[in-house]
Amino acid sequence: MNKFYKALGVLNEGIVIIDKQLKVCYWNNYMETITNLTFDQVNNKSILSVLPKLNTNYFKKTVNDLFESGNKAFFSAAMHKDLLNESIDYNLNLSVIDEGESKYLLLEFIDVSCQFMQINKLKSYITELHKLNTKLKEKEKIIEKLAYYDSLTGVANRTLFYELAKKMLHNAKRNNHLMCLMFLDVDNFKCINDQYGHEIGDRALIKVAEILNNAVRKNDIVARYGGDEFLILLPKIQSYDDFKVIESRISESKDILSIDGNEIEISISVGKSFYPKDGDTIDKLITKADKDMYRNKRKKFAGLLH
């Protein structure tokens, strides 16, 4: 039997054997080192007083059940902190030893501190990577936005407009839908810039983009074509007059910019072209709508348009 005790003595885990009265019968070298208590100091003493962290109802209930059932129990370090001391995490296995009429309970304290350390380290790496990944994704979105959206007004830029317009034209051709392209130009924009400066001019353009966004339907596209020129694409319209609804919303929402006591009225000239009547490419539709816009602007300033 001494052989077995010697073997338990050299194990690199805490081994304790207690009897049914919970008194310590065996305490290996590892336990002596980790608790600074020798076997002689704990021999025949209640495990509950030797290791006060075990002095809980659930430990006592578990031990009673085990002596009755003969089965095994397991205490995880995550749920039972500081079982032996505060610096090391231990899992605890409990098994019953049957020796004739007598029953004993074997307690195995297994050091899992390394697991905790490694897992915490890994978690912190993963968290860092996750944060980095989130930042990169945000930057990717910003870059995408810069590539496809006008940085001043936030509406689509020319690149995105062409990409989307081509797809919509393709769909219109395939499904025999009508499509409308509107060309819009801010009246007297050069005068606004000259008189009030570029900062005010920029604010006027932001306001125009806002007016256009408010006027269109959910799937229409508003884009800044360049300078003070904007494009609107109305895919899938029912009749040539449908664009008038959008046009009237734009003309009705003339806005006044109030800057440093000056009131600047923003007005917009609009031209339109339709697929298939006016062309079967985006460039043809833009050219046609541009010409129409200039015709309308001239009429407006000549006082012919009501």
Binding site: F74, A77, V112, Q115, I126, T127, H130
Partner: peptide, 17 residues
């Protein structure tokens, strides 16, 4: 953290055990 919601460590396995 959302990033390791479905990654389980030995500690998690021990709790479930």
């Amino acid at each position: 953290e959302e990033c390791y919601e479905l990654d389980f460590s030995d500690i998690d396995f021990d709790v479930v055990k």
